[in-house]
């Protein structure tokens, strides 16, 4: 790391009249020194290599301190305009940011900073972003900011070509990953007008295969309902899906509703809920819906019994 001279800068100290604990003093003093220098340089609006270096050191210690990100962005924008090769300069900044990103998976300033850099970049590339996105998701497959950033990239670059396969991979790895299921829906919403009959059928098969693997998993059931709603004008699978869902609830619908202990276990309460929702929409099957909701309230999802009673009241 390059050494810069800050001896001409008069630090603006943090106001404090407190004595530091001995064991903390070294670390704290160093941090205070950095912050004092930063405050001074910010107040002078110095946009220089040494100011840039200082922001890196502070981000290293306190990455959530947003003021320093603002300041760094101003420095980068200025130095970029003075550099001979803007693309090279910004790519170097992105390289630095990749390192910081890997060390700070929970930080979210990073992602809006990254968006600002890409907007500034004369020739931004989605391809360049894919490795860091992959590393971050490998590290935490439900990282909210990383997923949001990935979607932002798809829209920013108008490029969805990797998304369906990527969502499939993540679902293969963890079938409960709601972020991946949601991303899949994001893909279809954006492919709504170009989806083919074959793709529709394939997608239904994909959903059913995943539910078959783990029936008691809320994400694909919610996804199934959402997918049906999205393509309601082009789909006629009602009976196929209903028959499929029915395979997970045994024969409970034909049993008398007695005490919870007398009722058998079923493979999926979400299947029962899905069916209740479906049956409730048609007056001919309303009785089945009432029974399904009653079973949820009594036995299969009793923690939400007030919701199920509300649904029954609505049907009556």
């Amino acid at each position: 790391m390059e050494e810069y001279d800050y001896s001409d800068v008069k630090p603006l100290p943090i106001e404090t009249d407190l004595q530091d604990e001995l064991c903390r003093i070294m670390y704290t003093e160093d941090y205070k020194r950095l912050m004092g220098l930063a405050r001074a340089l910010i107040s002078l609006n110095e946009l220089s290599p040494r100011a840039l270096q200082l922001t890196a050191e502070i981000i290293d210690v306190a990455p959530a301190f947003y003021t320093i990100w603002n300041y760094r962005f101003n420095i980068v924008r200025h130095m970029m305009s003075e550099s001979e090769d803007t693309v090279l300069y910004l790519n170097k900044e992105l390289d630095w940011l990749d390192e910081v990103t890997l060390n700070n998976p929970k930080n979210y300033q990073i992602w809006s900073y990254r968006q600002s850099l890409l907007k500034l970049h004369p020739s931004p590339s989605f391809k360049r972003e894919l490795p860091i996105l992959k590393l971050m998701i490998d590290d935490d497959s439900k990282n909210y900011h990383v997923w949001s950033y990935r979607k932002w990239c798809c829209l920013f670059f108008s490029d969805f070509q990797h998304e369906l396969a990527y969502a499939s991979d993540l679902i293969e790895t963890d079938i409960y990953n709601n972020s991946a299921w949601t991303h899949r829906m994001f893909y279809w919403v954006n492919a709504k007008d170009v989806i083919s009959k074959v793709e529709l059928a394939d997608e239904l098969q994909f959903i059913m295969d995943k539910i078959q693997l783990v029936p008691q998993n809320i994400s694909p059931w919610t996804y199934l309902r959402g997918f049906q709603e999205l393509f309601h004008d082009r789909l006629q699978w009602d009976s196929k899906v209903v028959d499929f869902a029915t395979t997970f609830i045994g024969d409970v619908l034909s049993l008398p509703i007695g005490s919870p202990e007398d009722l058998p276990e079923i493979e999926s309460s979400y299947a029962l809920e899905f069916l209740a929702y479906h049956w409730g929409a048609d007056p001919c099957t309303r009785d089945n819906a009432v029974k399904a909701y009653s079973l949820l309230a009594i036995k299969y999802d009793p923690i939400r019994k007030n919701l199920w009673h509300h649904k029954i009241n609505n049907l009556n």
Partner: peptide, 16 residues
């Protein structure tokens, strides 16, 4: 507002 009945951090983001 999302298809599942939740709301995201921005349009298209997962419900939270």
């Amino acid at each position: 507002y999302n298809f599942d009945g939740g709301f995201g951090l921005c349009p298209n983001a997962e419900s939270h």
